[in-house]
Amino acid sequence: MLEHGVDIVLAGSIAVVAWRVLLEPQLFRSMVLFIAMGLMLSLAWVRLAAPDIALAEAAIGAGLTGILLIRAAQTEAAQEAAAAAREAATSGWRRWFPGAGRIVSAAAALAFAAVLLVAVIDLPGEPIGLTEAAATEMEASGVEHPVTSVLLNFRAYDTWLEVGVLLLAAMGVLAIHRTYNLRSTRSEEHTMLVLTWLARIILPLAVLIAGYLYWSGTHQPGGAFQAGAILAAALVLMQLAGFRGVSGLSTLWLGAGLMLSFAAFLAVGFIGTFEGEFLRYRHATGELIILALELTIVVSTAVTLAALFAGAGSQSGDDSDAVRARTPPESL
């Protein structure tokens, strides 16, 4: 019963914090609350026997997404007031029915929640899924951790395309900025000494943790994406501390870093076709190939996430001077 109490309190708190994220008028605080929600979700993942997801949520879902959002919030904060004033003077039917949009939206959202609840209650209560199947085949996959065996062997094709999504996002960000490397991104002007000092300590620590997560992923919770995210966080910190990080990379090196993992899957897939099917690797060589692929995932995830951070806050190369003149000074 006490066990259950923990879950009830946790679930309740997550719901309340999510609601606060929405209500919080100040953007920056709202983002901080969002990160807090992510960390609480990590606890929920632990409660639900999903330690891999807890790690990924903390590192990517709360961590990097949070950093991205906070960075976006910083520049937006200055505009908040002006925008709010504009919103008050909205045109069209909204002016005549203030709050109508909210009421309709709330009704729609509640309807969705109700329907979803009904669907969840209708789900069969007894286990039905692929737990057994994964347990039976795990030996043939080359690793001893079920999630890794699914991610890098049974459904490696999905993982490859997932790496592709990450890569495409980075390519998209570069295309939006009309650039091929991040050298034109603005370096941090007001670097704090303490940040520089912190970066020097954290970088080796991050490498160590990432290495451990990567290595342990074959037989216990951990894994390549989580390790990559930790490294990316360190790279982001370096950038905030005034080091060049990924924005110091040349076009070719940045491209290579972004592409490495996707290309590695492609190569492994190609080689697999000589033995049988695309992405076939079983038996003896399975573990080695999985370790190699995971290593490329670590590198590419780290470079890509750090590049996404640099790109989301950067000025484009060609007209950055004109833009900078227009951009309000950063507060906070």
Partner: peptide, 13 residues
């Protein structure tokens, strides 16, 4: 049909 990685459904794609 084609079983990626040689894994048949339901486990494979």
């Amino acid at each position: 049909g084609y079983a990626l990685g040689g894994w048949e459904a339901p486990l494979g794609i």
